[in-house]
């Protein structure tokens, strides 16, 4: 259903959900920053034949996409960015 245009979209509940998802996303990126020296090392380890380390980028990409994707969707909805009603 097209969401009705209403200031209710910016309800306290929506704000809490947006902030919670934003915090989760920020935490992941903080973790990425703290591991930024270790990640190239993992790549080098995979290159040396430790096959399991090649799975690390796949898992990281999936987790970031789900959490950050949920946050960006909620954030844009909170700002009132919405598709044109046909």
């Amino acid at each position: 259903m097209s969401a009705p245009s209403s200031p209710a979209r910016r309800s306290p509940r929506a704000l809490i959900v947006t902030l919670a998802l934003g915090a989760a996303s920020a935490a992941l990126y903080l973790l990425l920053y703290l591991s930024s020296d270790m990640l190239p090392e993992l790549s080098a380890t995979a290159r040396r034949g430790e096959t399991l380390y090649a799975l690390v980028p796949l898992v990281v990409a999936m987790v970031f996409c789900v959490v950050h994707g949920a946050f960006t969707g909620q954030f844009c909805a909170f700002l009132g960015l919405r598709a044109k009603k046909k």
Partner: peptide
Amino acid sequence: ALDGFVDIRLSMIILAGSLFGI
């Protein structure tokens, strides 16, 4: 990734901006 070509730091920073942009 087996050959160590994936720089996941770059991937995730691009993803951060890309998901807003999309």
